[in-house]
């Protein structure tokens, strides 16, 4: 074999590959961004602003965790934003118009998310249509359903204190910081996702399916079943995030979550997960979620006109992706 050309991999090379890993470069950029915003505006790191950012972060972050696993397996889901809107709307309609108990309504909402994810997954795997087209159609169906059943009007959300409100949208103070229970959800689910993707048997399967589906199938990995479950998971997490959001602001709007699908995908790929599958990183996604959140927040604080700020967000995301691509090329060459 002509393996003689390959030298043994020295330890220093392994360390440098960590530094060149996509999540590391994302982390460096996140730190730079935070520093820039902190210097440009003293209020950026104030307890109130950090509390604000931490209130929004978990809602998109939770969806991003599911999206990371799904992207790693080589598929993606454009219907998450619509599910984010529909799930709480259905729950509140069942409570307000159907007279159901809030617990049962929440359960029904989650079952609906499971059904949406299952339909996505089954069409993608059994009929073989690309997930882009399937979930784009599902986005329209789900968003349309939310608008139709509410006649376009936002619903007043559940605001009576109780177990479920505390569970999903309770708040607590640490010093001068005010946090929501959603942060615990995000942290817990992140740890679970890290475990599953990097340390469990399932994670090995997910990466293998996204990297080379035929190879995985040839080794007896049930690729289609894994994908269907990941679609279900992503949908459920989107619905959960929607309910958390609706409970926090005490309103369920049929247009909530519009455009979230792209924001979530941006978080995931900015963190270093490959859009083409095979390479996924939950830590990178957490960094990506923090980055997009702080960009949105910081840009407003430093005085960029509100209407212009998407320009900056877009440019920063592009810059990140170019950087990842260059790093990837570099790694391949060495």
């Amino acid at each position: 074999m002509t393996i003689a050309a390959e030298q043994e991999m020295p330890r220093s090379k392994r360390r440098s590959s960590l530094i060149r890993s996509p999540q590391f470069s994302s982390l460096v950029i996140l730190i730079v961004l935070l520093a820039v915003f902190a210097i440009a505006d003293g209020n950026f790191l104030s307890p109130l602003n950090i509390s604000n950012m931490m209130a929004f972060l978990p809602e998109l972050g939770i969806i991003a965790l599911g999206m990371t696993l799904l992207l790693t397996a080589g598929e993606f889901d454009l219907s998450v934003g619509a599910v984010f809107g529909l799930a709480p709307v259905v729950v509140m309609l069942l409570v307000q118009n159907g007279g159901f108990d809030i617990g049962i309504a929440l359960l029904a909402g989650l079952l609906l998310c499971i059904a949406i994810g299952a339909v996505n997954g089954l069409i993608v795997t059994k009929i073989g249509i690309s997930s882009f087209l399937v979930t784009l159609s599902m986005l329209l169906v789900v968003r349309g359903a939310a608008l139709y059943i509410t006649q376009g009007f936002p619903l007043k959300s559940w605001d009576q204190p109780g177990f479920f409100v505390t569970l999903l949208a309770g708040s607590f103070n640490i010093g001068t910081f005010r946090f929501y229970t959603s942060l615990w959800w995000f942290i817990g689910l992140s740890l679970l996702a890290i475990y599953v993707l990097h340390y469990a048997k399932l994670g090995n399967w997910i990466s293998a399916i996204g990297s080379n589906r035929n190879a995985a199938v040839a080794r007896g990995v049930p690729a289609d079943a894994v994908k269907v479950w990941l679609f279900i998971l992503t949908s459920v997490l989107a619905g959960l995030a929607g309910m958390i959001s609706a409970f926090r602001i005490s309103a369920a709007s049929p247009v909530a979550g519009t455009g979230y699908e792209l924001e979530v995908i941006a978080m995931v790929v900015v963190g270093g997960t490959a859009l083409t599958g095979g390479r996924g990183t939950i830590l990178g996604t957490i960094v990506g979620a923090l980055m997009l959140r702080s960009i949105r927040n910081g840009i407003v604080l430093i005085g960029v006109p509100g209407l212009a700020y998407n320009i900056f967000v877009g440019v920063i995301i592009l810059a990140m992706l170019i950087l990842h691509a260059l790093l990837q090329k570099n790694a391949a060459r060495s």
Binding site: K201, A208, S211, A215, A218, R219, G278
Partner: peptide, 25 residues
Amino acid sequence: TIHQDTSLAPDLSIARNLFLGREPV
């Protein structure tokens, strides 16, 4: 069966590929 070039997942380590589908747990 070892297929032409479809037998391995390029994004996984050698070790993980060797045990793909039969991972020691």
